[in-house]
Amino acid sequence: MTTQPAVDAQGLVKRFGAVTALAGVDLRVPAGEVLALVGPNGAGKTTAVRILATLLPPDGGHARITGLDVVRQAPAVRRVIGLSGQYAAVDAYLTGRENLTMIGRLSGLRRSAARRRAGDLLELFGLGAAADRQSRTYSGGTRRRLDVAASLVARPAVLFLDEPTTGLDPRGRLDLWRLIGELAAQGTTVLFSTQYLTEADRYADRVVLLDRGLVLAAGTPAQLKAAVGGDRLELRPRPGDDARPLAAAMAGLGPAPPSVDPGAGLVVVPVADGPDVLPEVAARLAAAGLRIAGLTLRRPSLDDVFLDLTGAPVAPYPADAGSAS
């Protein structure tokens, strides 16, 4: 029992017409683990979650949830999973309490049990004050919390959360992650998708990087960062200065060429040992007659891993997946 993974997907393929959303994806989540599925828009995150949650049959490969096949044993799979989709799917004209009670009834709870569970979850999610208002009066964040609460009604062994922090304010995000941490501590397996590597870094036991329907890398955040290796030296040009001469001056300093992060306006230089190269950095700046506004030395982030593997940062990726085939 304990050796059986909560999620075990092999070679998942899904095509929508000419677009290949998943091109052979393996996912394995041991019971009780929190796995982050990270990638830009169009990477295939939602498609993967929908297949695992029995909403979409794969065109190739197969997937098991707690040993149950998502296609052939779909009704049984639905008894062990909870799903919070990409958009908060709660009935706008029902109150929070009515929404949760309805989900409880449809999950097989008796009327009294469904009511009790709804009350407990409203309490747990801090929705007590809004419980008896129609959910169309809720703010986006409150709706989202109700949606996540709805996915927990049947105490699922495996919880799927598709971009759960979308639309939440910072406080809401922290509350949600605290709750997910508590669920995981109690043994719930959690698979969440996100565009934000910082969320994966902070809250996931393991991370799967997905891009254009393929797994780029998988491992613990520490493993992934170690694979990139070394430190990151960030140089900030003075306001108005071009970053490119700065990047050119640092060429050959580390094992990989410097890159310019246009969003942050930084020159990022991968270096084997940060403190060791500082005198060399100062010498090169002086020789080139360049001045800088700031300098930071840090350990690699998951963003660096993604950048390293794809040659592009996560955020500016185009939304379409049409080029993957």
Binding site: A53, D91, S107
Partner: peptide, 13 residues
């Protein structure tokens, strides 16, 4: 369109 059918279909109903 609002995802309610997705929610229902992922339930053992």
């Amino acid at each position: 369109a609002t995802g309610m059918i997705d929610r229902f279909r992922a339930l053992p109903a």
